[in-house]
Computed example of a mutant assay.
Amino acid sequence: MKAVRLTAPKHFEFIDIEQPQAIDGQCLVKLEKVSVCGSDIRHHYGPIKEESAYPMDPGLPCHELAGVVLESRTDSIKEGQRVIVIPARGTGGLQQYVVSDPSRMIVLPEQGPLDEWLMCQPSGTVLYACRKMGSVLSKNVVIFGQGSIGLSFTMIVSRLGARNVIVVDPLDYRLEKSKLFGATHTINPDKENLDDAISELTGGLGADITVEAAGYPDTLNLAFKHIKQFGTIIVFGVQADTFVPVEHNTWMNLQPTIIPTTGARSGDPIGQIQDIVALRERGWCDPAPLLTHKMGFSEVQAAYDMYEQRQDNVIKVVMDLNE
């Protein structure tokens, strides 16, 4: 089967590898759509690693994938069903077929474009984080970063009844997109004074809840700087470095509740995605507008370059493995 691997920083090559075989309790899935995630860029595609790290294993880096079950050797998943697959750690979806077991598969409705349903994968991980923050009714929420994760936070907390959904991002096209997802106020920190803007919107107190959805040291510290005393901070963005500098005195003075969240390591990697699929199906929310670009599998290099360089107002790019 056809697969892709990284042979050097930011350099893919196509190879032919043996098609995997399902064993008892597993399914063979023909992948149809895969999407690029920011963590793919930050931890695999973008950084320059030791020479011994290359070539990487086939299929990496990609963990947002959807396809059709070709063979099922389990009673809980049927052949022909459309599914999102959460690949096992250390494996990826830049290949035509994968095997998985039901504990890492989300069955999708029969109707609707598969690439749109795939957007439930990142939004589902955000739903897990939103459950950790408690009630947002009548609260001021500030979200740092409006990529696909930040926009998913905006979509969910706005529907959960936040008083103000204040979003911060240096890219105007993302801020414009956030209005479609429910942002009540947008701030470009490169164009206006962030401290003054948040102070005015929160009555000088700071936000009840801040969300770090960008994964940079500066935005992490901003999430602490702009929280009200005894507020709640959701840390979602994964930093590139193991250790990052923090403003310790701010933490001590404001004494916030700090909640790191990683849905994939929650012990139930599919439950929150199943829930967001159900919520979309009944019309409560729709993450499909995250999808801004569609490309073929043959354009994998261009897709990852587009995402990394934020070309053409990209939010999410999905590749069709049949093209």
Rank of each mutant, 00 (worst) to 15 (best):
A53L: 09
A53P: 10
Y54I: 12
P55E: 12
P55G: 07
M56T: 13
M56Y: 10
D57G: 05
P58I: 02
G59W: 02
G59M: 00
L60G: 02
L60Q: 11
L60I: 14
C62A: 08
H63A: 01
E64I: 06
V69P: 09
L70S: 04
E71H: 13
E71L: 10
E71S: 09
S72L: 01
S72F: 02
T74F: 05
T74I: 09
T74P: 05
D75Y: 08
S76I: 14
S76M: 09
S76E: 15
I77V: 13
K78Q: 15
E79D: 05
E79K: 10
Q81D: 15
R82S: 09
R82A: 06
I84E: 07
I84C: 02
V85F: 02
I86C: 07
P87M: 02
A88V: 07
R89C: 03
R89F: 12
G90E: 07
G90V: 04
G90D: 08
G92I: 01
G93T: 05
G93Q: 06
G93H: 06
G93F: 03
L94F: 04
L94D: 01
Q95H: 08
Q95L: 08
Y97G: 01
Y97A: 00
V98G: 00
V98I: 13
V98F: 00
V98R: 00
V99I: 15
V99T: 13
P102K: 08
P102R: 07
P102T: 12
P102H: 10
S103K: 14
S103G: 10
S103R: 15
R104C: 01
R104N: 09
M105Q: 11
L108M: 07
P109W: 06
P109R: 05
P109T: 08
E110V: 01
E110R: 02
Q111M: 07
Q111L: 07
G112W: 06
P113Q: 02
L114W: 13
L114N: 11
L114C: 09
L114T: 13
D115G: 00
D115S: 13
E116A: 08
W117K: 08
L118N: 10
L118Y: 13
C120F: 01
Q121T: 14
Q121D: 15
Q121C: 09
P122Y: 14
P122S: 11
P122Q: 13
P122N: 13
S123P: 09
S123I: 12
G124M: 02
V126G: 08
V126H: 10
V126T: 14
L127T: 07
Y128I: 03
Y128P: 04
A129S: 15
A129F: 02
A129G: 14
A129T: 11
A129W: 03
C130V: 15
R131L: 06
R131C: 07
M133I: 14
M133A: 04
M133H: 01
M133C: 03
